[in-house]
Write a protein that binds this DNA or RNA. Sequence first.
DNA 1: TTCTACACGTGAAGC
DNA 2: TGCTTCACGTGTAGA
Lengths: 241, 241
Amino acid sequence: MGSVPVGDSGFCRRFPNGLGFDFGSDGSSSSMVLDQERRAPSRLGGKRVGAGILDAKTAMAMKSHSEAERRRRERINGHLAVLRSMVPCDDKMEKAALLAQVISHVKKLKRNAAEINKSYTVPSDTDEVRVEVEGDMTIAGRLMVRASLCCDDRPEILADLRQALSGLHLKTVRAEISTLGGRMKNVLTMTSEGTFSNVDKHLFVASVHQALNSILDRVKSREDFLSRASFSNKRQRISPF
Amino acid sequence: MGSVPVGDSGFCRRFPNGLGFDFGSDGSSSSMVLDQERRAPSRLGGKRVGAGILDAKTAMAMKSHSEAERRRRERINGHLAVLRSMVPCDDKMEKAALLAQVISHVKKLKRNAAEINKSYTVPSDTDEVRVEVEGDMTIAGRLMVRASLCCDDRPEILADLRQALSGLHLKTVRAEISTLGGRMKNVLTMTSEGTFSNVDKHLFVASVHQALNSILDRVKSREDFLSRASFSNKRQRISPF
DNA sequence: TTCTACACGTGAAGC
DNA sequence: TGCTTCACGTGTAGA
C-alpha cells in the first residue's frame, strides 16, 4: 500500500528536465512541454507566451499549487492515521474500510450511551411505570427485563417492590435508585428463572407492569390519605439516605 | 466545493480525439498521443507498438483503471458523507475539518463511556472502598462526591450506610446498588451542604472513606462470625430483592 | 488577482 | 497476469 514519489508522474511529465523548477535560466529546456501544450492547449489562462516560452510566474504558481495540494493530502491522511489508532482495526486496513470501521464504531458508542442514559435518568415530576425486555432475543433461554418506577419518594417502596416481584420468580441483577427533590426513580434489571416463549414474554411483561402499577397506586392513595389527614407536606423528602 | 469533470484533464489530455475509447477503428487518430509518448515514454510496459499505434488493450486497461479509481473515490466519499451526518458539523465543512471533528467526537463519546463505566461496574470479588470528588472544581461552592463500596451482599448495609453518612451533612443525589452472585456494590453520588476549601476537601474525602471502611470492617467481622458459627455459607445470597 | 478545496486520471507497487 | 490501493500533479470552481 502506498507508493513513494519516484519521478515520472505529474510535474515530471510536464517538465521532463528532471530538475524541478529552475525556469528562467533557460527557456529552451521546456520546448517539449511547449509542443505538448500546442497539441492540447491548456485553459489555465495565460499559461503560454507567444514565442513558446513557458511563463516563469505560471510555473511558480503551479509549483505552489501542487505543494498546497500535498499539504492538504497530508492533513487528511494525518487525521486518518489518528482515527486508525482510535478504532479497533488492522494497521493495513485500506482507507474506505477504515472509514467504514469508524462509522460502525461511532454508532456503537452512541448506542451504548443511549442504552446507559435510559436508566440514568433523574426522577421526573410525572409518575411513570415502564417495563421493557432487554434486547430483542432471550439470551440463553432467559428473559432479561428492565423495569422502572418513578413516583414520590417513599422509604417503604423497596419493601413494596420486593413483595410485588416476589411471586414472579425474578432475580434482580441490578438495582438503581435515584432520589431528587422528594421524587424517586427505581430502575431494576432482572432475569427470569425459567424460559419463555414469545407469547409468554408479553404476558410476563404485562404482569410486571401490573405489579409496579399496584405499587404506584398505593403510593398515590397513601399520599392522598396523608394529604387529607394533613399529616405532612406532600413534597416532604423521605429518603433512605 | 467540488468540480464536475469537464474534459481537459487526464484521458482527454492523453487521448484528445474527444471521443473516448473507440480505438481499433482508426489507428491514426492517436498519432498525437504517440508523439507525446515518444517525448516522455511511458513505463507501464508494452503500451507502445512498433508502428506508433497505441495498443487497444492498453487503452482498455487504462479506462478500467480510471473507472476503478473513480469507484474507489466514491466509496471513500460515501463514507465521509455518512460521517458528516453523524457528527455535529456544518454541511459545507471541508474533508480535513470533518475528520478532525470525527476524531474529537469519538474522543468525547469514549470519555463519556469511561465516566459512566466508573459507576456501572458490576460488583467484583475484591472488597473495595473508593471515594472521589466529582470533577476538579467545586460547583457553586458545593462539593460533589462519588463514593463506592463493594463487599459481600448484606441487606443491612443500606441502613449502615445511612447511619455512617448521617453525621457528614451529605445529601444523596443518586444511589446505585448492584448485586450479583452474593456480592454487592453501592455507588453513592452526594453533595455537601456547606462549602469547602481545598484543604477541607481532602479531610472530607478522608472522613467519607473512613465511614465506608468501618462498614466494610463490620461486614467482614460479621462474616467471620457467621463463618465460625457455621450459620451459613459465606457466599449465600442475601439480597433485598 | 490569488488561494483553497475538490475530483480527476495516472504511475507505481502489492497481491 | 490483472486488479486494487495509494500518492501525485493537474483543471476547475468558489471565495
